[in-house]
């Protein structure tokens, strides 16, 4: 696949879900909170384009609102990761070898020992399950990811002569980090952000599937799957549709991330002339 095609297919897929999620604030085909046992487990039809679940709720509407939950959780989690991780990484790189650098890096290693699921378990054990829980668990795990990427690429920039030139021009480390380092790692952060966003969607689905994420009545893809599991023999469509939604959304984001990397990576660009 050509990198350009990859980017556009990815962006297109992601846009569909984003639009569906935004639309769900204003309108869904049916009310997802209203139970309608009379219409339970209906097949696909004009009224229910994707059928209904065991409570008679419209699957399409559930998927739209579920997209909202997934995107919101993953987006805020990426925000936490970028908001804390990038400054920490920049500071650590600007003060390479200092105590601060050491603390940031060891702290990162420590968080890596707590996969998001474990963080979610801890938080849930104390505060009970909630969507906020999922956001925190995924977001905390994102912090060291962004800190590491930022620090690594910032360190290689710090050895470049234009940074030295800026220091000779009397600029401090903080100012150089903002003026010279950050703009030159933005590409990388955008790509990493896309990857973490898609991982966040997957993690949110997993957490809600085991009941540590969004709680009823908030629809979420993971919980739809958990509820469908008991009916997998009789109504496999209930288990297949939310799964397909997750796959399509994550695939779209990953394709977009790869496409962006090819587009933004100057090495690739130069090679293509």
């Amino acid at each position: 696949m050509r990198p350009g095609a990859q980017l556009w297919i990815g962006a297109g897929l992601s846009a569909v879900f984003l639009l569906a999620a935004l639309l769900s604030f204003a309108w869904t085909p049916h009310d997802v909170t209203a139970l309608n046992i009379a219409d339970k487990l209906k097949p696909m039809s004009a009224t229910y384009p994707l059928g209904t679940d065991h409570f008679g709720r419209d699957i399409l509407s559930m998927l739209m609102v579920g997209a909202r939950t997934s995107i919101a959780v993953a987006l805020v989690a990426v925000g936490i990761g970028v908001g804390l991780g990038v400054p920490l990484g920049l500071l650590a790189a600007a003060n390479r070898g200092s105590l601060l650098d050491e603390v940031v890096m060891r702290g990162n290693d420590l968080i890596f020992a707590f996969p998001s699921l474990v963080i979610a378990i801890l938080i849930t054990a104390v505060f009970g399950p909630s969507a906020l829980n999922a956001i925190l668990a995924i977001g905390i795990f994102n912090v060291p990811v962004f800190a590491r990427v930022t620090r690594g690429s910032a360190l290689s920039l710090w050895t470049l002569d234009y940074v030295l030139a800026a220091r000779v021009a009397g600029k401090g480390r903080l100012r150089i980090s903002v003026e010279h380092i950050l703009p030159n790692i933005t590409n990388l952060l955008i790509v990493q952000g896309t990857i973490q966003f898609s991982l966040g969607i997957l993690a949110e689905a997993a957490l809600s599937y085991v009941g540590l994420g969004a709680q009823p009545p908030t629809p979420s893809w993971g919980r739809m799957l958990a509820e469908a599991q008991t009916m997998i023999y009789t109504n496999p469509a209930l288990a297949i549709l939310p799964g397909l939604a997750i796959v399509a959304m994550v695939l779209g984001l990953n394709l977009m991330g790869d496409g962006l990397r090819d587009l933004l990576d100057p090495r690739v660009r130069r090679a293509r002339g």
Partner: peptide, 29 residues
């Protein structure tokens, strides 16, 4: 009162700045 020219003509400039801003950077002083 003291400026510098480095070896590597490729690494000596922030690729995201225009020449005007690059050359004017020492005005920070």
């Amino acid at each position: 009162r003291m400026q510098v020219v480095f070896q590597d003509p490729y690494g000596s400039f922030n690729p995201r700045w225009r020449v005007e801003r690059l050359v004017a950077e020492p005005f920070h002083l």
